[in-house]
């Protein structure tokens, strides 16, 4: 599938900020079932965009902008060719052994409820990883209601699981937390999803999980849609949680108020 992506983010500061620094993880890499045909990233005001790679192998761009800074615009535009890998993701940039992805983080730390779910799913599926993960994905999809009102409410996996509501980020955190309890390495993926219903305008990027299954390798699970990764998914960055894979992490100087506007188009 050939997927074109346009993703623009505008930060407005009132009064103008005294400067800002941002780290962007907005550039996908190639792997066996993903080829980046064209990709451009553009920042205004003009700034030196330094391209590097983070510890997980994600491509990052860092830039700083000086005062007075009324707004920052980050525009991403590109085309990616994808193939269906039956959920399995091969040929990715790996910088760690899988066991690193058993590490817990503040956002993915298990609590008693999550541990109980892990135990239940493990037992029900005879501790077979692939079966457990499929069961887990369906379970979270059915149990946690999708609620976009929570987009800007950062929550941990445990909090989202207790609330039984969340966005793709929260479902993914919960998925990761349970998988790690089962001893299955799991990680967070930030990227784009081309929707089946043909809607191209989206309010936010997508997020799902990858879990490491013996004999298969990394497999993409999308608990928000209860499917494994298909050729409709464009994988941009991975991390231990949403913070590690965040498309943008930034800071501004001064005491201005910030407003944010995001426009994403994912389509053929």
């Amino acid at each position: 599938m050939r997927i074109s992506i346009a993703h623009s983010t505008v930060y407005r500061y009132e009064p103008p900020a005294n400067g800002a620094v941002q780290v962007l993880r907005l550039t996908p890499r190639n792997h066996d079932s993903q080829y980046v045909a064209r990709w451009r990233i553009d920042v205004s005001p003009d700034a030196q965009l330094a391209m590097r790679e983070d510890a997980f192998g994600n491509i990052t761009h860092v830039f700083s902008a000086a005062r007075p800074l009324p707004e920052i615009r980050v525009d991403v535009d590109g085309e990616v060719e994808t193939q269906d890998g039956n959920g399995v993701v091969r040929g990715t940039a790996e910088r760690f052994p899988q066991s690193l992805f058993l590490r817990d983080t503040d956002l993915t730390r298990a609590d008693a409820a999550i541990r109980a779910l892990a135990e239940e799913i493990g037992t029900a599926n005879g501790c077979i990883p692939l079966d457990s993960l499929h069961a887990l994905m369906r379970r979270l999809h059915d149990e946690i209601a999708y609620d976009t009102a929570l987009t800007n409410t950062p929550m941990s996996a445990a909090e989202a699981f207790a609330l039984k509501r969340g966005v793709c980020r929260d479902l993914t955190h919960a998925f990761i937390a349970v998988a790690r309890c089962l001893g299955i390495p799991a990680r967070y993926v930030a990227g784009y999803l081309q929707l089946a219903d043909g809607i191209t305008e989206q309010e936010a990027g997508h997020a799902w999980a990858e879990a490491f299954v013996p004999d298969l390798g990394w497999v993409g699970f999308d608990p928000a849609n209860a499917i494994c990764q298909t050729d409709a998914y464009v994988r941009v960055a991975v991390g231990l949680d949403s913070l590690g894979a965040a498309p943008v992490r930034g800071a501004r100087y001064g005491i201005s108020a910030e407003s944010l506007e995001v426009a994403i188009k994912v389509g053929q």
């Binding site: 510890a55 052994p97 066991s99 058993l102």
Partner: peptide, 17 residues
Amino acid sequence: EDLIFQNPVFRPEMNGQ
């Protein structure tokens, strides 16, 4: 291995740096 990779004081961010 897990004594390193599961250890909170291990900093994945420093990997390869």
